Simulated scan of single mutants.
Amino acid sequence: MKRTVFIYAVLVLLIFGVFLLSLQMGTMTIAPLEVLRTFMGSGTEEHALVLFEFRLPRMVIALLVGTGLAISGAILQSISRNELADPGILGINAGAGLGVVLFIYFVQGSYTALGGTAFFLPIFAFVGALTAAFLIYTLAWKKGVTPIRLLLVGIGINAGFTAILIVFQLRMNPNDFMQATVWLNGDIWGATWHETLATLPWMVLLIPLVMMQAKTLNVMRLGDPSAVSLGIKVERTRRRLLVLAVMLAGASVAVGGAISFLGLVAPHIARRMVGPRHQVMIPTAAMIGALILLFSDMISRNILSPSEIPVGIVVAILGAPYFLYLLMKTP
Rank of each mutant, 00 (worst) to 15 (best):
V5T: 05
Y8A: 12
V10C: 11
L11A: 07
V18W: 08
V18R: 08
L20P: 04
I30V: 14
R37S: 14
F39E: 05
E45A: 15
F52Q: 09
R55W: 05
R55C: 07
L56I: 12
R58F: 07
I61L: 14
L63V: 14
T67N: 11
L69S: 04
G73S: 11
S80M: 04
R81M: 08
E83Q: 06
E83S: 13
L84F: 04
G88Q: 01
A94W: 08
L98Y: 02
V101R: 08
F103D: 09
Y105L: 15
Q108W: 07
A113V: 03
L114V: 13
G115L: 09
F119Y: 12
F119C: 05
F126T: 06
V127Q: 09
L135H: 02
A140N: 13
R149A: 00
L150E: 00
L151R: 06
L151S: 01
L151T: 01
V153H: 05
V153G: 03
I155A: 04
G156V: 02
I166M: 12
V167E: 00
F168D: 06
N173M: 14
W183P: 01
N185W: 05
G186A: 06
D187E: 10
G190V: 07
A191T: 13
W193R: 03
W193H: 10
H194D: 15
E195Y: 09
E195H: 15
L197I: 08
L200G: 11
L200K: 07
W202A: 13
L206D: 12
L217V: 12
A227M: 15
R236S: 08
R236H: 06
L244K: 14
V246F: 00
L248P: 03
S252G: 07
G256V: 00
A258H: 00
V265G: 00
A266V: 02
R272G: 15
V274P: 08
R277N: 15
P283E: 10
I292S: 01
L294D: 03
I309G: 03
V311C: 00
I313N: 01
M328P: 02
K329E: 14
P331N: 12
P331V: 04
P331Y: 13
